[in-house]
Write a protein that binds this DNA or RNA. Structure first.
Lengths: 329, 329
DNA sequence: ATGAAAGCGCTAACAT
DNA sequence: ATGTTAGCGCTTTCAT
């Protein structure tokens, strides 16, 4: 692989001139430019990012931390991040942390090691303390999940309001016994969505019953099934369920069907995220839609601004309740 | 951020010694090592990969090209790749090409630019000609989909045999009118799976009917629905359907249900991939399971061997037909 | 408009 | 066992 030296030699100019051509400096004669471009062509030369990055001490790589690529919720967000990044001359490094601190450590080091210019974290299970520490020295943005006590800029939706609206929708349908399938409340979004759930119940003078609130440690289908199994065992069965994630709701639906019960006639069901599969279930799932693509674009924009030392403010985006068969009696 | 110079100065040694400590050379005295380590600690020093990589002309980054992270099929493969990569001191760069040649180009350049040491391609829509060209100069492995005419090592399963077994399973159940929902036959796996479908029909003297073979350009659910809609319009409806992907099969199932037909009583259904959703549908989906994690590990191993200039041979892994409700009358 | 040369942070060959 | 030094490929001042 040819380097800049050989190109310079072949073109009969200095390396500086080649560099100028590469970086589109205006001071190069059309004639010289042509000579250099010909040499580049002939030698099949490709500039080494390594040399350039070392010199500029930037990598133009953005790290994106997600807990698991299996969760379809992240897909569209990542598309938004990627499109925005590429438009701005950045590439993204997708890091499936598996919520594993060791993997996380490796990726954090990439930033310290100058192999990446910044981080977008979407992992609720990330070590917030570490992340806040890193953020003192390196550009970091949080997307979807964030640390309310920290100082890292974030983009997210109003989780409490979204949950409130979802539950209110169930109440308006006449439900009085509404269960909540929540994830681990050490995550902010889980606490916020629970707050929205309680807010709606309170507003309509419905009691908040611990027996109808189930917590699960993971978001995979099976945990939704497990949650629903438990809820169906309570002596007074709920007539509606609000689940903080579509994957959990889909598991719950499976379990309800397995008990020969019908949705929505016996139990109405609302999910969260509007993953594509939520429209393939039978019945289709009422759910809260987040502007995922936009969220990704926004996060990438914020990070790039931060890398360029500009001011960055946190952003709250809109959401939407999508009513489908699982709540349409 | 401190550099190796400052560490050397603080420790009262040369940069070479610091480098030796960093790289665990055995020739360093315990005492010197301690001095250096203390200095590193105090300065909060992190070696710059950029400098190291430039010097060694390697990045220890592996590129993984996938057509779309939304397809759950790739999830487990990527986990395998990632685990193997990390074990060997490599990190992976996940590239969602969206089957977009422009994005592809960017990622190809990363290898040319020394920002990545090699590529694992899982994109069926990749420009095979370009890929083969690149492979002359850079380490490349294909995973799952490959080019039978090319020289790039690959890891995959026997698609024809897998399809043959799936269709034979339907025939053994008594089905004589078996439809095929295939993807675009410009992809090898699509041609191979069709060959398996035809092989099974031929073996049992069943006619191959073009009206029961449907091609779709994409793998998303909606395209499965569309395919099934068409198949249900044929004057002689099939009693069984083999779909080359679970996502398509799930769409087909949705459509069958919409027509008030039952699976498997009216129409039996077999998918391919065993994605996690395939167990959440009602009924659950009979499907072909690929050893995805192992496939990922193998691909990463092969690539790393190739990077180290070792010989690499293509690998065919085993598959398994998982019989579930959609074919259990 | 172009060239010469320093230097980004690191490793390794060579010298001591 | 440790130090000196060249050089990986590039960009950018400073001269000319």
């Amino acid at each position: 692989m040819a380097n800049i030296q050989e190109v310079a030699q072949k073109a009969g100019v200095s390396v500086a001139t080649v560099s100028r051509v590469l970086n589109q400096h205006p001071t190069v004669t059309a004639k010289t430019r042509l000579k250099v471009e010909t040499a580049i062509e002939e030698l099949n030369y490709e500039p080494s990012m390594l040399g350039r990055n070392l010199r500029n001490s930037e990598s133009r790589l953005l790290l994106v931390l997600i807990p698991s690529i299996s969760n379809p919720f992240y897909t569209e967000i990542i598309n938004g991040i990627e499109d925005t990044a590429i438009t701005n001359g950045y590439n993204i490094l997708l890091c499936d942390t598996d919520s594993n601190p060791q993997r996380e450590h490796i990726y954090f080091n990439m930033v310290k090691n100058k192999l990446a210019d910044g981080i977008i974290s979407m992992d609720p299970a990330v070590d917030m303390e570490k992340l806040n520490g890193l953020a003192m020295q390196y550009p970091i943005i949080q997307c979807s999940e964030y640390d309310e006590k920290g100082t890292i800029p974030y983009v997210t939706i109003d989780n409490q309001l979204a949950a409130y609206r979802a539950v209110k929708h169930l109440i308006k349908l006449g439900h009085k016994k509404i269960a909540l399938i929540n994830s681990d409340e050490r995550f902010l979004y889980a606490r916020e969505r629970r707050a929205g759930y309680e807010q709606a119940l309170r507003e309509f003078n419905l009691p908040i019953q611990e027996k109808w609130i189930y917590h699960t440690n993971h978001l995979e289908f099976e945990f939704g099934q497990q949650a629903m199994r438990k809820l169906l065992q309570t002596e007074e069965k709920p007539t509606a369920v609000f689940s903080v994630s579509d994957t959990l709701a889909i598991g719950a639906l499976k379990e309800i069907n397995a008990h020969e019960l019908n949705v929505p006639e016996d139990i109405a069901l609302v999910g969260f995220d509007k993953i594509s599969f939520s429209n393939m279930t039978n019945p289709t799932l009422t759910t809260v839609s987040q502007p995922m693509y936009k969220m990704g674009c926004t996060a990438a924009d914020m990070l790039i601004r931060k890398i360029h030392n500009k001011d960055v403010e946190s952003v709250i985006l809109d959401h939407e309740l999508v009513i489908r068969e699982s709540t349409m009696g």
